[in-house]
Amino acid sequence: MLAGAVSTLWLASSGKLTLYVHPRYEFFTVSLAVVAGVIAVASMLVAQPLNSEEHEHEHEHEHEHGTIARKNSNARVWAMAGTVGVTGLAIAMLLIAPPATLSTTIAGQRDVAESSARIGSSSAQNLVGADTSAFTVKDWAVLLSSGDPATITGKAASLTGFVIDTTDPDVFFVARYLISCCAVDAQPVGVPVYSPGWQAMAPVGTWVDVTGVFSPAPDASIAPDFVLLPTSVVGVPEPGNPYVY
């Protein structure tokens, strides 16, 4: 538990806790990590002797019964081995592995979120008329899900995300992972970009900065009603926090 508390507090102090949990849980997570850390240290200082006495008491009981003692001894060896193994894995996971974001490979195994309910609580109505210069991939995805041509057509956007292919060879998604609770529920959320031959300049999984204007899909056979017509697609490094919430 102490390792978990140390890991949580270090991640929070370095601004990387939100790579694993939604920001709305950050205060709660950090608060309980402080509590867990303080109590864990205090229990080692104060309560260790108490638990040790009880442990010795159990041993005394076992010495009184030969066969049972042997069986318990074997069980204790296995339990000890398991504890050491799990502790080693916990330390490796919590204290040795550097913080990392999910790879874009995972996105290929998960559907792109399109329904407004999944995309989030910020409804499309709240975004209509807002300053679009600060819109994230998620904001645009919410607006696109409304399907209102008046609020979408002709709007300029500059988006950073990773590339996911679609069933249409002329369209790709510029996407980010959407986190609802923790990294386990990460699901890509994306904006469709119409750019024939995009595969040559933006391979799947790479991070790109796409600038362009939204327009109704130029071809009726294209699944999304609206697409981003790019004026530039530039490769960029992965941002420090690649998620949207």
Partner: peptide, 24 residues
């Protein structure tokens, strides 16, 4: 570590860090 292993660690940490305050 491989990319898949790193993703497994990230997922595991997500579950663990999300659960830890509730367990505490």
């Amino acid at each position: 570590v491989s990319e898949a292993t790193q993703d497994a660690i990230t997922f595991s940490l997500g579950v663990f860090l999300e659960s830890l305050p509730f367990v505490t």
